[in-house]
């Protein structure tokens, strides 16, 4: 019984039932499949984070973002500048209480180096409806190369709790043909 000491003092010497052994082998093999699947996807799959990241101050990240906005702003939407950076370029997106800055306009089928950082607390970059979710830290700059594959209007929802205005923090990314 599980609540009494093993009746056989040398329980390690007991043979293992075949049913159990077969299940252990299956479960172990399945674990290996799942383990190597992650490694395989790094080669064969198209969705992997590069893990490229830097330490950066809020001031420096703001500076870089503003440089991009000044060179590539195409229009305004309310207070938000809409920026259409050239394909292949470095694109910056600021997270702060409680908005994403600026609005980006990307071209379908082109790739961009997207830089994310926060100026204050942690935020969550949740791109909807495609459903890509990445954590954004203050003091760290996360870089990922994205390639929008469908045109349309995307929302950037904040999905890390960031205070009382958290649920108002929505940004926008346009993807044009």
């Amino acid at each position: 019984m599980a609540i009494t000491p093993p009746s056989n003092l040398l329980w390690w010497r007991e043979p293992v039932a075949r049913t159990e052994l077969v299940w252990i082998i299956i479960a172990f093999a399945w674990g290996l499949v799942m383990f190597f699947m992650m490694i395989y996807w790094h080669g064969a799959g198209e969705q992997n984070l590069s893990n490229e990241a830097y330490r950066i101050s809020a001031e420096r990240f703001t500076e870089k973002t503003n440089e991009m906005i000044e060179s590539h702003e195409v229009r305004k939407e309310g207070n938000f500048p809409v920026v259409r950076p050239p394909p292949g370029s470095d694109v910056y997106l600021i997270a702060r209480l409680w908005h994403w800055w600026p609005i980006l306009e990307l071209e379908k089928g082109q790739s961009y180096r997207l830089h994310l950082s926060s100026l204050d607390w942690q935020h969550g970059f949740s791109l909807q409806p495609t459903n890509i979710n990445v954590q954004v830290h203050p003091g760290y700059e996360l870089v990922m190369t994205v390639e929008p594959d469908r045109a349309g209007e995307y929302a950037v929802v904040c999905n890390e709790f960031c205070g009382i205005g958290h649920h108002l923090m929505v940004g926008k990314i346009y993807v044009t043909e």
């Binding site: 830097y54 330490r55 950066i56 990240f61 760290y140």
Partner: peptide, 11 residues
Amino acid sequence: IMEIVQIPVAP
């Protein structure tokens, strides 16, 4: 933590 402290400063 070793990996985190080795994150380089942005260029």
